[in-house]
Simulated scan of single mutants.
Amino acid sequence: MIRSASPVREQAAPTATPALETSAFGRDLLRAFSVRPREISPKYFYDAEGSRLFDRICDLPEYYPTRCEREVLGRHAGDIAGELGADVEIVEFGAGSCEKVRLLLDALQRPRRFRPIDISAEHLDAAAAGLRRDYPGLDVQPMAADYTRRLLLPAPEPGVRRVGFFPGSTIGNFTPREALAFMRMAAQVLRGGGLLLGADLVKAPEVLHAAYNDSQGVTAAFNLNLLARANRELGTRFDLEAFDHAAFYNAPLQRIEMHLASRREQEVTLGERRFTLREGETLHTENSHKFTPERLRLLAMRAGFRPGPIWFDRRRWFCVQWMMS
């Protein structure tokens, strides 16, 4: 699928509606349609409905990353807990439903505090309530925030080591430059502790294709929910039937790309601005970069971490890397 670099055909009025101008989502959506190639951050997938759909994706038979990562955490929980140490404060970036951290909590000695950070406040609060119920001695302090931006956290208590947890290969959603910037920010936030990072590995293209084009169409619904969210929150009028979910493996760049492809030539109205999409033209919604262990170690060192042990699932499809700050 080729995304044209030609100028945008736009019929513009001087201003957009307040809803589009006053929210980060609205401003970024306007920006996405104002340039080519058209692309928007995948963080906007995760409203309450998007988070619910992503939880369903994690249970799909084709979607191996969640099962593989749980296998790694389950098989090697004792070794991982030994590296992290006792009396830790865990900061989870992009915590979502907070399910994987349970495997760590069950193995750790005297975990002191858990700070889950996620952009979807409603989903996060529900997950935090479940953790408080199941781990009554754990201090759970959720933080609704964009974890890709600079974070200001209170200093850990004396004798408490702060460690980060970034599972799900979410690091692969960043561009290489963004990944390095995030890792450098994490190294500062976690100074004196470390980061436990989950990463999906390079593998056969057919396995990757199936994982992002599931037979039940849940990933397609997750992708299209970005437009549905815009309709709900910003008052746009996207016709979801006019777009197709498109996901494919870009082998030279070692990444899955997800797009929303226009099924026909159509006009999209955002507030008082109108944009023309040709048949086949896309909005690029997500990348999912795949890694090699060597590439992960290099990223860690460039960000200021010291790479430690790395653990794999049986098929070596997924890994969890410990790195010290």
Rank of each mutant, 00 (worst) to 15 (best):
A77S: 11
E49S: 04
F174S: 11
L131R: 07
A220Q: 03
P176I: 12
P154H: 03
E279Y: 01
A95E: 05
L270D: 02
D59T: 15
F166M: 10
Q266T: 11
L104I: 10
A220Y: 00
S120C: 14
P116G: 08
P136G: 13
A126D: 15
N213A: 03
H259N: 11
H289V: 09
A13Y: 09
A77R: 08
L29G: 05
D106V: 10
R75A: 08
R113D: 07
E206F: 08
E62Q: 14
R161L: 05
P307D: 01
V189Y: 05
R112G: 09
G164C: 04
H284D: 00
P156D: 07
P42Q: 00
E206D: 14
L226F: 04
G304F: 06
T148N: 14
A19N: 08
M1W: 01
E62R: 13
A300S: 14
L151D: 04
Q216L: 12
R297I: 10
E39M: 08
F182H: 03
F93D: 04
A181Q: 11
L153K: 08
D134K: 11
A127C: 12
T276W: 07
L190R: 03
E178F: 04
D125I: 12
L298P: 02
R75V: 03
I256T: 08
L105A: 05
F166D: 05
F182S: 04
R112S: 12
I2C: 01
G217P: 03
L208S: 00
P167N: 09
V72T: 06
P205S: 08
L283V: 05
L180P: 03
L108S: 07
E178Y: 06
A107T: 10
F312H: 13
E257T: 05
A121V: 12
D125G: 13
N173H: 12
R191F: 01
I90A: 05
E233T: 00
T66M: 11
R295L: 11
N250E: 15
I2P: 00
E267F: 02
E62N: 13
K203N: 07
E92T: 11
P156Y: 07
V101Y: 06
H123E: 11
Q254C: 11
S97D: 14
N231F: 00
R132L: 10
D59I: 10
S262Q: 09
D244P: 00
P158E: 12
C98R: 12
R52F: 06
V88I: 09
L124N: 06
Q141I: 13
G304K: 07
R278M: 12
R102H: 02
R75Q: 09
R31W: 02
T66L: 09
C68D: 12
L60M: 13
D146V: 13
D106R: 15
F93L: 15
R36K: 10
A12P: 07
E241S: 06
F248S: 14
L260M: 09
